[in-house]
Design a protein around this nucleic acid. Sequence first.
DNA 1: ACGGACAACATTGTCAACAATATTGTTCTC
DNA 2: GAGAACAATATTGTTGACAATGTTGTCCGT
Lengths: 216, 216
Amino acid sequence: MPNQARPGTGEQARQHALERLRQAILRGDMAPAQRLVENELAEQFGVTRASVRAALIELESEGLVERIRNRGSRVRVVTVEEAVAITECRMVLEGLCAAKAAVAATDDELAQLTTIGRAMTKAVADGEPVTYSELNQELHARIRQFSGQRTAVELLEKLNAQLVRHRFQLALRPGRPQRSLGEHLAMVETITARDPQAAEAAARAHLTSVIAALRE
Amino acid sequence: MPNQARPGTGEQARQHALERLRQAILRGDMAPAQRLVENELAEQFGVTRASVRAALIELESEGLVERIRNRGSRVRVVTVEEAVAITECRMVLEGLCAAKAAVAATDDELAQLTTIGRAMTKAVADGEPVTYSELNQELHARIRQFSGQRTAVELLEKLNAQLVRHRFQLALRPGRPQRSLGEHLAMVETITARDPQAAEAAARAHLTSVIAALRE
DNA sequence: ACGGACAACATTGTCAACAATATTGTTCTC
DNA sequence: GAGAACAATATTGTTGACAATGTTGTCCGT
């Protein structure tokens, strides 16, 4: 039973295939560099090849899939070098979002950031790296959201999607949460202080540290 | 005679349609918000609807086209507000590229920047806004290229494509070249001085000025 | 005249079959 | 046995037809 969603409903085939395939790649179900044969995917998802094709084209421009003319598609492998380049872009874009958020966020939204910061501190104290990683994601997402910078948010989400594998690897590294906690708290503090320049600097400092960690 | 390229050659239909359509939008042949009916485009380009469809999906994720389910595609209109948001992203990304270029460029490449800077100065002195605008494009492109930051370059090219209309409008504004010339020269100077921080600051200052001009 | 049901139309979404291309395996020559 | 031409296979690219959906215009009752 390859299908987990009803094929007969109004759910458009292409969108269905797109979502299934994207999730499969993001969850790591597809091995890196694995070949993605249109026919196989079509059967697996219970849609036609045309829909899979459309989904692959879309995923290609999201950077999750690599396509070569007449040769097929594969899950794109992001080298460490590329991961660094991507994270450099994240650095400046998250800096922009942090600065914007420091100005644009409501008081209620700032309180949310503080709450997440406290939870992160607790997660580190309790030695729960998985919880910490989730809160990490949550914090970055909120800051993006509060910035109100739709273009930057879209770019960042695309960039982040390409880094799933590296992020996963990074989160499990011992000592990493302890180091990054302070950086995250600095971001929260500067944003809640409504200091855009300091917020940008804090975000960039954090991402700089991530880059250093990526390089091992 | 709608076709300008031979249909029988090895040129893949989808890529052909993609390129034609992208150029048409970028050249402004398609009015903003114009409806893009798949059948019409297919006939116009001499390819089948499936190829046009694939091209539209790709252009959608490039931000040039807007698609609504079961309702069709249109040329995306970028509001001034969006143009500002896009340019803010450009600001930080070009800042990154300028900083990288200051470190990574070869001496020969730096000389190219200086040459373009001189040509820009001359274009302003001679009162040739079109030449100046072209050199402007050229300078930014070179800096991106010399940075060696492929991810940032890709993002910037996508962002720039969305701004064609606004850029065109901006270039013809009287007095604008005079104002931006100094900013451009500052970018060249700081990069050739191999000072990444100053280069980033100069790039950001320039784009900040562009944002101010966009807002009128 | 006004509003709603309904039918005709236009357009996109999906499908299955066909053509083109690259890869792989085989055979033949030397 | 090694290498090149060649056939066989696998996979993608393309096509035209069909189904589903949204839109527009018309007819009817009030």
